[in-house]
Design a protein around this nucleic acid. Structure first.
Lengths: 202, 202
DNA sequence: CTGCAATTCAACCATATGGTTGAATTTTAT
DNA sequence: ATAAAATTCAACCATATGGTTGAATTGCAG
């Protein structure tokens, strides 16, 4: 019966993930989460005491999916070029399942910047030391133009994330539909690394 | 009295702008808007019939500030390099006054993508023809590497916008505070054009 | 089979929220 | 001064929403 308990708890959590990521904290309804989980509202409070607590879990789990995707790749042993290719690839495959995650993180971090910063610090999400050294080595060796590593990282992440959070805008400006957007991202997987590599080449 | 009327209507609108852009549609409270405007709730409904209607105005005005910033610069007569510099400059000075505008637009466009797309179409926000021709000319002349114009535009906008919507994340990852973030953007005004120009150079 | 713990559900409660009304007061244009 | 418009205020309404409760049901160990 412990198994069954875990199962239900898990179902609720996954439902909460979908609803919160789609609607945001303020827009999410506990009833919607219950419906999505196929259970009754009382269960939500039986397992998680309040909307706030349930949200915290969803948000923190979202963070754990959002940042390690980047940092794990960054701290790998790959050379610069395959590393950037892997980073782009990781982004665009990871968020296929959870398309709302990037905009969710961005929206909620802006709603409660202090809480967000606190969480980032306690979980020690940092720029991997390994990556900083790698970039510096490339610059020393003259295989990459000199620039601020942080600036480079922000640009790279921004280039990956932006299309995912600006999807409706991109669809209308490019005059494409949802299906074609998928193709656009596929093509982008190949084009974006070129753009980034060109930007840092001497 | 027409003047006074306009004045109050304007005050309400500006208050609504601040509250909606900060809290989003779902998070905004009509009472908060009334307080912010220094008037009472009845006035909101006297001038704007409902939360929804007031929001529509705020959102549409936000769009008119967000897109023409880009498109006016893009369709100007500037050469490519000063144009990119002007674009970055325009972004980072424009949104100093309304720091929440970019994340507001992104959040709400994702909440109602169809409504958003409809609005974009009726107001005919498009990639300026002038700009497309300019880029193609550069590529013909061999002063720029061949790439998809749309891809180039999305990258440029993404690079401008991302820091503005990911501010808390950037502050914590770089270990800086709000004041230092301002300096970061100042420095970025100079660095970003270099990055972009390098990325499209042959 | 039985009793206990886990689980479910419907009904309910208190509050927040968007919205309305109408009368009283103030401001403004003429 | 007067009429029209603008503004304020308090009270009110209907609904939505987060949260609670207790009885009923289910599942499992003994």
């Amino acid at each position: 019966m412990v198994d069954k308990k875990k199962e239900t708890e898990e179902q609720i959590f996954e439902a909460a993930e979908r609803v919160f990521q789609r609607d945001g904290y303020a827009g999410a309804r506990m009833q919607d989460i219950a419906d999505e989980a196929g259970i009754n509202k009382s269960m939500l409070h039986y397992y998680y005491r309040s909307k706030e607590k349930l949200f915290q879990k969803v948000f923190q789990e979202g963070m754990r999916q959002f940042f390690p995707v980047i940092f794990n790749v960054l701290s790998s042993d790959l050379a610069l070029i395959p590393k950037i290719e892997a980073l782009v690839e990781a982004y665009y495959t990871k968020f296929e399942e959870k398309p709302h995650l990037p905009s969710f993180i961005i929206h909620e971090m802006n709603q409660h910047p202090d809480r967000f910063k606190e969480f980032m610090k306690t979980t020690s999400f940092r720029i991997p030391e390994q990556f900083i050294k790698q970039i510096q080595a490339e610059m020393e060796a003259g295989t990459m133009r000199r620039m601020d590593v942080r600036e480079f990282l922000i640009n790279t992440i921004g280039l990956c994330v932006f299309p995912l959070v600006a999807r409706p805008m991109i669809e209308v400006v490019l005059g494409i539909n949802d299906e074609q957007f998928g193709m656009f991202l596929e093509k982008r997987k190949k084009e974006l690394p070129k753009f980034i590599l060109n930007a840092i080449q001497k």
